[in-house]
Design a protein around this nucleic acid. Sequence first.
DNA 1: TAGATTGTTAATCGATTAACAATC
DNA 2: TAGATTGTTAATCGATTAACAATC
Lengths: 217, 217
Amino acid sequence: MDQKGISRAVIKRLPRYYRYLGELLEAGVERISSGELSERMKVTASQIRQDLNNFGGFGQQGYGYNVRHLHTEIAKILGLDRTHNMIIVGAGNLGQALANYASFERSGFKTVGLFDVNPVLKGVSVRGIEIRMTDELPEFIRTHNVEIAALTLPKTKALEMAKCLVDNGVKAIWNFALTDLNLILPKDVVVENVHLSESLMRLSYNLNTYSGEEHKK
Amino acid sequence: MDQKGISRAVIKRLPRYYRYLGELLEAGVERISSGELSERMKVTASQIRQDLNNFGGFGQQGYGYNVRHLHTEIAKILGLDRTHNMIIVGAGNLGQALANYASFERSGFKTVGLFDVNPVLKGVSVRGIEIRMTDELPEFIRTHNVEIAALTLPKTKALEMAKCLVDNGVKAIWNFALTDLNLILPKDVVVENVHLSESLMRLSYNLNTYSGEEHKK
DNA sequence: TAGATTGTTAATCGATTAACAATC
DNA sequence: TAGATTGTTAATCGATTAACAATC
């Protein structure tokens, strides 16, 4: 259950495997070989086999992989076989957008609370979740078994809030603020960054570089 | 101006350098050495020097890097020295959240239009931008010099819409839909994916793996 | 059994780090 | 000039791909 020393590159690819397997499952496909999957996903079959074998022998020689089984196993690896309670801290546009995203719930990420510092938002409901003030956070975290906090606050407030969350038992931060929380928080707190403006800059770089140019290869 | 063959890993780091340099600039720091910067950013000085030297010798022996100059140069590399017109296709929660994000504008990404298929949204304004119906897209793209389209539609509609956008001259897609557009679009169209649910799954994996465990090193 | 396809080892490729000569 | 720090080459490390023996 506890896999250590698996490279970040492998982990990054797992959700994509999971997605393709889900689609195959829906399409009623029972088995798939690494070769077939590699064609669909445009990666090498070798990579698929190497990646999966980090976690165990999910396939069978001469047969390939059972789609349903592999899908279930990857779900377990990613922790999608159980529910994770999540709160969203910062009920601005982005925070509310996340609260409205029903699809996270389907993967087991349940939004149990929505918080903000702005008193104007107090009591406003988003998809049935009432916005609370941040002074209620410590108690709420303890009483609601909160594991994950999505941080959708301006960078100026993010660091202090992150510390507060961690002090009160939050184990994972989904960080949308443009600051490197991981450099400041205890090492056992998991941080996943979504830095939208950096993503947009990479897009812009590629636009600069490839645009107008004939694509080689 | 046209850098070819620069690795994706380097590009991924550039926006972060840019951010740190911006902060130094604001703090009034004039010069910085790779060693000093490496300490702040928790990367090796070697990596910083290697990365920057892909684009030219921005430093000076015995002195280090001039913060303002380096900041400006990275901006140029990332294409932040000019304005990019962007539209947002899909005016749901996420689309509206992006439209409200003023900070993109500050980096030169200007939201000039907001589109949806839902007639209920027609004419609604978000931050002064009126929501239009998607049948107006082709003309709008041509007349407004649109380079970038943010795709914030459900996956089912994303592919068809992406094709339409590209047919009408969009060169870059900022893709929030959970589908691999890059596998289907022409190779000279730039795609940058923001797959939120995959990000959340990686967070969940790490939560599974590191939680409770004493951190080694 | 013969054919297919995995699991796994070995080879290659690319990215990171270390070292140091060049030079401001 | 002496000291500092870059730019760049060489060494190391890690990730990807290829190959093939194991096996269903």
